[in-house]
């Protein structure tokens, strides 16, 4: 707390001797700092507000919600809404809560993440180190395909899935997620493998290692960070998906997001806002936990989409 004084004294001394030199001494509470921190704190509070409201609403009883103010902390904390959202909330005829959607989402997300990363990493490796004639053409189509609105491809995929007997099944949805994860993931892996020193690859070739041997023994161990980035990207993306879940699965296989929407936006019955908010938080919890744990890697994952190859 005594810093400003010391800095000022030093500043005066330098001034008196030979004019200003070095960085300008800053006071901690300069008008500039108040402006910067003030703005950032207000914006940060605004961004946190919905999370706060979700949490407090989910911990209140309905009588308290009807009387009170949505921003106020709960007077009497109750976990009943959470229990109800998880195990008892109804969608249509099923009254077993969001747990069903949660487990569906797990059964969709885990295989989709593994399959899509497997395909894209091998493919990216092939594109980076084993280029063949025509590879660039397909890759370009793939990248441009990422910009085509999903709506254009929704129905043709219904037909394809129906032909191979996977329409309405979780396996079908896993395939769809793998297909649509391919552009960004392939780009990610291709760029990463391209950035590795080429000598490494050449040395392995000279030693007689083949395609798969180099992939498993050299590339894979060296690229763990990029696999983590890809995993974060895919887990959050697939967990948060709504459109594919609603189009390609049946009601009892709906992922968590679809079930959440059906619970909250159902027209029958009395609206229980606390249960709704508990359900919303439960659905958002998985990506939020991943986000707060992964920190910088998450940023790297989303920035990967922005960096052109």
């Amino acid at each position: 707390m005594s810093d400003p004084g010391i800095l000022n004294v030093a500043g005066v001394g330098a001034d008196a001797l030979d004019g200003p030199r070095g960085p300008k001494p800053r006071r901690r509470f300069s008008r500039r700092n108040i402006f910067i921190y003030g703005t950032l704190i207000v914006v940060a509070l605004y961004y946190l507000l919905p999370l706060w409201v979700m949490v407090v609403t989910s911990l209140k009883g309905m009588p308290e919600i009807r009387l009170g103010n949505i921003f106020a902390p709960p007077v009497e904390i109750t976990f009943q809404p959470w229990v109800k959202a998880w195990a008892e909330a109804c969608t249509g005829l099923n009254c077993d809560g969001l747990s069903r959607g949660f487990w569906n989402s797990v059964r969709i997300t885990v295989p989709s993440v593994i399959l899509s990363i497997l395909i894209a990493s091998v493919n990216g490796y092939a594109l980076a180190n084993w280029r063949f004639k025509g590879a660039d053409v397909f890759f370009t189509i793939l990248i441009f395909g990422a910009f085509i609105p999903y709506q254009v491809m929704l129905y043709p995929i219904v037909i394809i899935l129906r032909e191979i007997g996977l329409y309405g099944s979780l396996t079908g949805l896993v395939l769809v997620h793998s297909v649509f994860g391919m552009p960004i993931l392939t780009l990610l892996f291709r760029n990463y493998f391209t950035s590795l020193p080429e000598e490494l690859f050449k040395a392995a070739r000279v030693d007689g290692a083949g395609f798969w041997q180099i992939y498993f023994q050299i590339m894979l161990p060296m690229s763990l960070p990029i696999f983590v980035v890809a995993m974060i990207l895919q887990v959050t993306g697939i967990w948060n998906d709504f459109l594919f879940g609603v189009v390609y699965t049946k009601p009892d296989l709906y992922p968590m997001t679809v079930q959440l929407n059906n619970i909250v936006n159902s027209v029958q019955g009395v609206k229980e806002y606390n249960v709704n908010m508990a359900a919303t938080l439960l659905t958002g919890l998985v990506p939020l936990v991943i986000y707060f744990i992964s920190g910088k890697l998450f940023v790297r994952g989303i920035a990967a989409g922005a960096v052109k190859g």
Binding site: I119, V122, N123, Y125, A126, L127, W130, R131, F132, A135, F138, F139, I141, L142, F144, G145, I148, V152, M153, Y155, P156, I157, I160, S178, V179, M182, T186, G210, F211, W212
Partner: peptide
Amino acid sequence: NAKIAAIPMVLTALVVFTGGTIWT
């Protein structure tokens, strides 16, 4: 081997992205 590894990409690019778009 590289071509085998690229089969999913080729199928996605040709069948789903290009084929699906043209079909629609």
